[in-house]
Design a protein around this nucleic acid. Structure first.
Lengths: 199, 199
DNA sequence: GTCTATACGAGGATAGAC
DNA sequence: GTCTATCCTCGTATAGAC
């Protein structure tokens, strides 16, 4: 990987995450990098390929993040409900606390309105697979008698819906945002949830 | 109001809500309307003014929607918790069930990434003022002893956060979406909430 | 790999005839 | 109010010298 290529990618992530792919011209991007427009095409075939590369990075980082469900179930054996929910929050938090990851997710949030692949990413990774995953976790908890016998799908929506709300409102926009307040809100939510479903 | 002007506005709402303001050219818009590009400028000063007009419509319709807080408090005198929450859901639902309103909110959702005013609209009307409003309602409920003495701000986030999650995931994209499933999810949520906070 | 120069289509907008 | 014709800028991208 050349230095210039990396710099193009970094700058693209910065700029695309601010105003979206279409609103950032190659002229502006290359100027911010400090090269001429034509030089960009030594590193990427075209503008679209820059975005593709960013998407790929997201995909890879996402797949290394989520723990296998089997591991989760094993952890549940030795953990209280509170401990487990706290862990779930910390996991999401760790991931979203990385400015680069937040920026890339922000690009996805913008592009999903015009780009089918971004929509895919968003719905699949940020929403549906997370819901499915948590549904299974709650199913496990119910089976073990840890929590009330509520519809696990509905419970998953209760947990994850709130996370997405928080993400949208407070984290999405300001890459430098102080996450303390956000964390407190999420913790409040987990407390609320715990007392509501504990048996 | 001329017929052509109305048609431009309708078409703009359709197209902008699909791909956003910047991705719809004046050429495309006027072609969809069935007039020449130059004719558009007899009805609007420029492209931006079309978007401004759409924003204004949203502002007006929103302000006629929300009931004064005083009225809400009076209604609380004669209603059960369930009835009240159901009413709140129906209110949001009625509003978002109008395809035109959903389209305009979708434009806001898209434009908030690049347009300060859209961001204002989104944060202020769709999130913050709704949270503030519901906080006051929950405060009233706690004072009346209808619900548990939980932080009313946190409760407002629990209710409204979920509504936004549902809006984002399921309503935002498909103007023709079958809202039945969405309503069921919201009702599940309200049931969950009710049993969690009822005294 | 980077530069200068250039192509060329698409974008928003205006002038002026009808 | 609508049309034809036209303008100018900005967008992505390429050719070819260094």
């Amino acid at each position: 990987m050349s230095k210039t290529r990396e710099k193009i990618l970094d700058t693209a992530i910065d700029l695309f995450s601010e105003r979206g792919y279409n609103d950032v011209s190659v002229r502006e991007l290359t100027q911010a990098v400090g090269i001429k427009e034509s030089s960009l095409y030594n590193h990427f075939e075209n503008k679209q390929q820059i975005l593709d590369t960013i998407y790929q990075e997201l995909l890879q980082s996402y797949e290394t993040m989520t723990l296998p469900l089997k591991t989760i179930m094993e952890m549940l054996e030795n953990m209280s409900l509170e401990e487990f929910l706290e862990l779930a929050v910390r996991n999401f938090d760790n991931y979203m606390a990385q400015p680069r990851m937040r920026k890339i997710w922000r690009i996805i949030s913008i592009e999903r309105f015009r780009d089918e692949r971004a929509r895919e990413f968003f719905n699949r990774y940020l929403v549906d697979s997370a819901l499915e995953y948590q549904t299974k976790v709650f199913e496990g908890m119910i089976r073990k008698g840890l929590i009330k016998d509520w519809d696990p799908r509905a419970l998953a929506r209760e947990t994850h819906g709130f996370m997405l709300f928080v993400y949208f409102r407070y984290m999405e926009f300001d890459p430098q945002a102080d996450l303390k307040e956000v964390r407190e809100m999420v913790m409040d939510h987990m407390k609320f949830l715990t007392q509501a479903i504990r048996k």
